[in-house]
Design a protein around this nucleic acid. Sequence first.
DNA 1: AAAATTGATTTTGTATACAGCTTGATTAAA
DNA 2: TTTAATCAAGCTGTATACAAAATCAATTTT
Lengths: 230, 230
Amino acid sequence: MKTKQPAARIELSAIYSELRDRICLLQYAPGTRLREEQIAKEFGISRTPVREVIQKLSFAGLVTSKNGIGTIVTEMDSSKLLEIYTLRSKLATMIGELTPNDCQPEQVAAVEKLLDRARNLKDSLEIRDYWMINHEMHFIISELIGNAPLREMWDHLYFQAARFWYDVTRTDVKDVADSLHREIEDILIALRMNDIAAIGYIERNYITYGLRKIKVHYGECELTHKIRTK
Amino acid sequence: MKTKQPAARIELSAIYSELRDRICLLQYAPGTRLREEQIAKEFGISRTPVREVIQKLSFAGLVTSKNGIGTIVTEMDSSKLLEIYTLRSKLATMIGELTPNDCQPEQVAAVEKLLDRARNLKDSLEIRDYWMINHEMHFIISELIGNAPLREMWDHLYFQAARFWYDVTRTDVKDVADSLHREIEDILIALRMNDIAAIGYIERNYITYGLRKIKVHYGECELTHKIRTK
DNA sequence: AAAATTGATTTTGTATACAGCTTGATTAAA
DNA sequence: TTTAATCAAGCTGTATACAAAATCAATTTT
C-alpha cells in the first residue's frame, strides 16, 4: 500500500497565479533569480510546463529570461511606472463609455464585505490585508468592464504596477488604508445605483491620487532612476 | 565537402512574424489547423521552440491550441470585432495626449513614399499592396506613440483585427484604396507640422469609417454570428 | 603582483521520446 | 440495415537528456 497518494496534478494556471502573486507581493522581489528546476520540483512537474508558465509571466512583464543567466524578476524605472499610471487613469474613464456590464447583487454584497475588511484594516494596518482587499477590489471592477480587450489591458496594467504600488504603501500604511476605505465607500455608492461610469471616474481619481504618492515616494528628481525594492 | 551549408538558425521572432503575417494575410484562414511538426520541419527546428512561438501567437489571440485536436487559427464574432474597433478609436485619441514622440525626418520621408505607393494602388488595385502599405503605415504611427504600454496595446489590437478588416477590403478595393490614399495625405500634413495629436484624431476618424464598412459588410443583423473567412 | 585565460559550474535553450486526449473509421452486435 | 463500441491514427502535452551560454574562481602567464 502506498503511503503517498500521487499528488493530484495542479493546473498550470494555478501555478501561474501563485507565482504572479508571489511577485506582486514582493515575496520574489525585483532582481530575484528564479530557477526553473526549483519551481518544477516544488510543484512536482518537469521543466517543460514550468517554462510555459514562465513565458506567460514574461508576457505579463513580470520576469525576463536570459540564456546562461536565469529568470529574473523585472525591475522598473519610475518613468515607466508613470506611463502605466497615466494610461490607467485614462482607461478608467472608458469603463463607463464602452458598454459596461450591469452589476450583479453578489457584487454589491462582495463590496460590502470588502468595506468591512477595509474598516478593520484601519485598525490592524496589516499590509498584507491591504493588498488582498485591493486585489479583490480590482477583480470586481474588472468584471464590470464590458469591453473584453479593455478588460484584458486593465488587468495587464494592474499586475505590472501592483508590486511597486505595494512598495509605496508600506511607508504610510495608515494613509493608504484610509484612502482605500474611502475608495470602497465611493464605489459602493455608485455600484448600488448601477452607475458603472461613475466607478470608472472614481477609479480615475484614486489612480491619480496614487500617482501623486508614487512621485513623492520615489522623488520627482529621481524620475530616471531605477526603482529597486530592498 | 558538404553540398549543403548547415542553414543559419533563424530567429524565433522572425518565425513569429512570418506566421503572424500569414495569418493576417489570410494565407492561414480562420479555422485552419496548424501542425507543430510541419512548422518545425519547414524552419528546420524541433517542436519545442515552435511551441514557444505558437504560445506567443496564442497570446496575440491569433490561434488556440487544444490537446488532441490541434492548433487552430482563431475565428471571430462580429461583436468582438466591434469591441476592438471601438476601443481602438478611443485609444487613438490618447496618442497625442500621452507624451507622443517627436516625428523624425525619416518618418516624413517614409510616409511620402507610402503616399506614392497608395497613389499607384488606386490604379493597380492590388489587394496585397494595400495590406503592405497599411501595415507599414501602422508601424510608423506606432513609433509616434510615446507611452510604451499604449503602443503595445495599439499593436496588439491592430494584429487582432487586421485580417478581418483585410477580408472586408476585398469586396470594394477601389473604395478602400481611395480611403487609404486620403488617410495618408491627411497624416502627412499633420506629420510635417509634428502635430502628433492630430494624427491620433485622424486615426480615430478612419477607424470609425472602417467600423462602418465592417458593419455593412457583415450586416448589422448578423452581429451575433461568427465571422468565418472562406 | 597583476592581469588574462582557461575551466568548472550553473542556468536557460533545444531535441526527442513518450503519454494523454480526440476524432473518425471499422467492425461487431442488435 | 442501423447502431454502438472498439481500435487506430494523429495531434498536443510532458518528461528528460543534451547543447549552448554566462559567470566565477582558480591557475597560468606576463
